[in-house]
């Protein structure tokens, strides 16, 4: 099934394997940050990347079975766009939270001055 394996395939496969094993070890070590849901997501995503990088021809047969035919590239492109949109949303949410935290911290720091002024 493996005809010729390129360096890129090996790099992608090793990277996927590293993330996959890290996720599994974290779960075995019962680290708080690693939940069962996160482990499953990790196995599905990195597992798929690992398999597809070693056996790229699977994508074509899978695409045909799912009825996408030759439009697989369009599907991948749409996938990237969706990931980009989600990433942007997450960054915006984080920025808003960071800003709110700073505002709360600032308000608390300045309360000392306001208190002194009120007492005067």
């Amino acid at each position: 099934m493996i005809k010729t394996v390129s360096i890129l395939q090996i790099i992608v496969a090793l990277t996927a394997l590293a993330f996959l094993l890290t996720g599994i070890f974290k779960y075995i070590k019962r680290q708080r940050s690693q939940t069962f849901f996160k482990l499953m997501a990790s196995v599905i995503i990195w597992g798929s990347i690992f398999v597809f990088s070693i056996f790229p021809s699977i994508t074509h047969s899978l695409s045909a079975k799912l009825g996408f035919g030759e439009s697989l590239n369009t599907l991948i492109f749409i996938g990237f766009v969706i990931i980009f949109i989600i990433l942007t949303k997450i960054i915006n949410i984080i920025e808003r939270i960071e800003k709110n935290i700073s505002e709360i911290v600032r308000k608390e720091a300045l309360s000392k001055i306001n208190q002194t002024k009120t007492n005067d």
């Binding site: 911290v105 720091a109 300045l110 001055i113 002024k117």
Partner: peptide
């Protein structure tokens, strides 16, 4: 010297901004 404290680290920019807000109060 007016000493103010951020109860958690928010970065140099945030600290300067707090200082500027304090200066505005004065």
């Amino acid at each position: 010297v007016i000493s103010l404290k951020h109860f958690i680290n928010r970065g140099k920019g945030a600290a300067i901004k707090t200082g500027i807000e304090a200066a505005k109060i004065f």
